[in-house]
């Protein structure tokens, strides 16, 4: 089933990540690691965890970028996980069929029981979303928390990905991007949600909401009150203020 599903339900579950709101706190990354290390992909192994070169398999990573230069520059925090692409080569290159895209909701998964750890899918992913688990010998990736979102054991409002639930600023939104009426689709329309590197043709489902324009001198709606004249005697301002403040104000 390495072939992409021939027909789909039209449902495209995914994440919408608001770069205007993300503070780079890493909560989504650790909560993801925490849920998933004991979840569908268990374990997400760590190497040399207390040593000189600690690393491990994570399904979500948060970068910080400097964007632009000087006065108009900005700092943008940028979470990166699987985008659950519509036409991803990571699935079609897989020799075993371990990598597949669910017909029902579009989630791209690795079957940890059949993956041979050839790593080819990680080469095929432009977004760095697949991480090989050296100890487990298989590829790991964001599951869109498939074992949460349909999980009867969780209360309905908790049936969202771990990262979405944890995100303290609410910068992560989960829903059906295939459904034009969904809240996430609306958000994408209103805020100009975009695809990462659309030119590669993977058709990511996840969308990013761009940082909003800054509201500083260049865009200020309010003109600053004219400055006092240079060298104006401070006293005149005080007298003016005193005259104004001399109203009778009852307690």
């Amino acid at each position: 089933m390495t072939a992409l599903p021939a027909t789909t339900t039209g449902k495209k579950l995914g994440l919408v990540i608001d770069l205007d709101t993300c503070v780079g706190c890493q909560a989504c990354a650790t909560s993801c690691k925490e849920w998933n290390t004991s979840g569908y992909s268990a374990p997400l192994s760590d190497h040399d965890p207390y040593g000189s070169d600690p690393s491990g398999a994570w399904l979500n990573r948060v970068h910080a970028f400097d964007v632009g230069e000087g006065a108009t520059s900005r700092t943008v925090h940028f979470p990166r996980s699987c985008l659950h692409c519509e036409t991803p080569a990571c699935v079609t290159v897989c020799p075993t069929g371990a990598s597949y895209k669910r017909a029902e909701d579009g989630i791209v998964l690795v079957n940890p029981d059949t993956c041979i750890g050839c790593k080819l899918c990680s080469w095929a992913c432009p977004y760095g979303a697949r991480e090989y688990d050296y100890a487990d010998g298989v590829m790991k990736k964001c599951t869109l928390c498939v074992d949460r979102i349909y999980n009867d054991h969780l209360v309905p409002e908790d049936r969202v990905p771990a990262c979405v639930k944890a995100c303290p600023t609410g910068a992560r939104h989960f829903g059906d991007i295939g459904d034009e009426t969904s809240a996430v689709s609306k958000l994408v329309r209103e805020r100009g949600g975009y695809d990462l590197m659309p030119e590669l043709g993977y058709k990511p489902v996840n969308k990013y909401l761009p940082p909003r324009p800054r509201r500083d001198a260049s865009t200020a709606a309010i003109a600053s009150t004219p400055a006092e004249k240079v060298g104006a005697p401070g006293n005149s301002a005080i007298e003016k203020l005193f005259a104004w403040a001399d109203k009778a104000l009852s307690r």
Binding site: M1, A3, P5, A6, T7, T8, T9, G97, Y100, R102, A103, E104, N111, D113, T114
Partner: peptide, 11 residues
């Protein structure tokens, strides 16, 4: 398992 036909069944 997806409702739609595929070359191989999803696990």
């Amino acid at each position: 398992a997806g409702p739609t036909a595929q070359s191989l069944p999803e696990p």
